[in-house]
Structures are given as structure tokens and as C-alpha cells.
Write a protein that binds this DNA or RNA. Structure first.
Lengths: 125, 125
DNA sequence: GTAATATATTACTATACGGTAATGCTTTGG
DNA sequence: CCAAAGCATTACCGTATAGTAATATATTAC
């Protein structure tokens, strides 16, 4: 059932791992050293451990070149792993699916969100 | 940066919280007791704590009716919180976005993906 | 009024997990 | 061959957190 979602979301829970996925997604295949260079506060072996987790989850794959490993996003598996979960909320997404492209073309750095708290549903007595 | 994604994915990391979101998404507003009834292995106060977390994250909201609280999905905030992250992988999704609807229109409950043409009558040996 | 129901809160425990340091294993370079 | 580079693996530690039990608070029922 959701047995696979468990590992997926456990993997995605860590910000370092998410950032690794981000880097691989936007910059293509990278070695462990190149990835570790993006995390000055972390030790290389820590990055390696994260990469092993991502690899075990099938979200990335690696090919050796000499003494270095080149990691890259397993985009198909990545999408395939998340799609079923997202599909469960399809009716909520559907209105936003078109906005997704718009949102991607606007600057994604700024994070201004309007408060959705004011839409309080009132219950008829 | 990704400061808000951190809390979001930390919330989604727990399978119980994800299931709560699922229930609210597919069955509409529910009370704490109704939700707790879906988790026989857990104590009600545990569910209440999860609901507090979800509430603090803005993913659900609650309205009181007498002595019971009715929780419901904050679908707008939910979509708004996830969209920026999903948008980062937009080019990987784009090929799958159309498949999302197809995937949602197939029965999402059953997870048998074997071809139905081989299902013929079983013959005892 | 009192008792029972429905939820929230607190204190506590156990486990999981991210991080580091140390070590090991290949591969490249001299 | 020897040393260094690049990465993986192990052992260990600190902390975050999911779970429970107990208690608290508010509302309905009697």
C-alpha cells in the first residue's frame, strides 16, 4: 500500500538529501566531491551516506569513472515514486496544475504567500 | 531558502500524518474521534498531537462543534506549500503531468498492474 | 448539581536518525 | 612500489520525535 511511500518520504524528509536531489536535477550528473563541495558544513562521508540512502531508494544511480562515482537523478523512478501519492490529491492539484507552469516561470526564489487562514468555513447551526 | 519546505517534509515524513491527510482529502471533514477510529493501534491523544502538528503547519484547520473538533484539509495551503518544490522538477514532471490524470482516473485503490488479458479461468492440475 | 464524553496537554520513554571521526578499499600519480 | 586522492563503511554520539499514560479542560447528558 503505502509501504513504498514510507521510505520515499523518509528520504525526502532530510533537507540535505532534498538539496542533493535539487543539485542533480538542475546541474546534471555530479561526483561525490562536487556534491560535497556544496555542503561546507558537512563532512564528505556524510554526503556519501546520504547518497547511499538515495541510491537504496532508487532515486539516484551512480556510474564509476576511475576512482570517482558519478551520481545522477533517476528521474523516471523519482517521478514514478511520487506520482501515486500526488494522484491521490488530484482534484486539489487539478486547479493548480496549470498554475504550476506559471509558477515555474515566475521567480521561484521569492516565497511570498498570502494567508489562507482567513477562509474559515462556517458551520450552519 | 527552503526553510518552509523543511517543516512541510518533516510533517509528511510520518505515515500516520500522511494517512490523516489522505482521510481528510477523500472523506471530507472529520472529528478527532472519527480519525482516531481509523488507527486502532494508536491512542487518541497521539492522533490529537499529530493533528496539532498538521494544524501548526497550516495543512489542516479545525472548527469546534460542541465538544468535538472538526478537522478538514486546508487544501489551498497544502497545494501552495508543495507546489514550489514540485515546480523545481517541472521538466521531469511535465512528461508525467498528463499521465497524472490518467493515473487518477484508473482505480487508485486497487494496485494490481498485471494485464487483464491473461486472467482466464484457472484449471486445477 | 454529577458523571460521562471529547479533545488537549504534559511528562516520560524508547527508538530512529543525522552527524562526525576513524578506518578500509580502489584507483591515480610520481 | 609508495603516497595521495576519492569514496565507502563502520562505530559511536547527541538529539529529535513518535508513542504512551496520566492529567487537564471544556461540553453534553442525566
Amino acid at each position: 500500500m503505502s509501504g513504498d511511500s514510507d521510505t520515499l518520504f523518509r528520504i525526502l524528509a532530510d533537507p540535505t538529501r532534498r538539496q542533493i536531489l535539487d543539485l542533480l536535477a538542475e546541474r546534471g550528473p555530479l561526483t561525490v566531491g562536487q556534491l560535497a563541495a556544496e555542503f561546507p558544513d558537512l563532512v564528505t562521508s556524510g554526503i556519501s551516506k546520504h547518497l547511499m540512502s538515495l541510491r537504496a531508494a532508487g532515486l539516484v544511480c551512480a556510474t564509476r569513472r576511475g576512482r570517482q562515482q558519478i551520481y545522477q537523478l533517476e528521474s523516471d523512478a523519482f517521478v514514478a515514486a511520487l506520482s501515486p501519492w500526488i494522484a491521490k490529491y488530484e482534484r486539489y492539484w487539478s486547479t493548480a496544475l496549470e498554475r504550476l507552469r506559471v509558477l515555474a516561470e515566475e521567480e521561484p526564489t521569492k516565497d511570498q504567500r498570502k494567508s489562507a487562514k482567513d477562509v474559515r468555513q462556517r458551520r450552519p447551526k
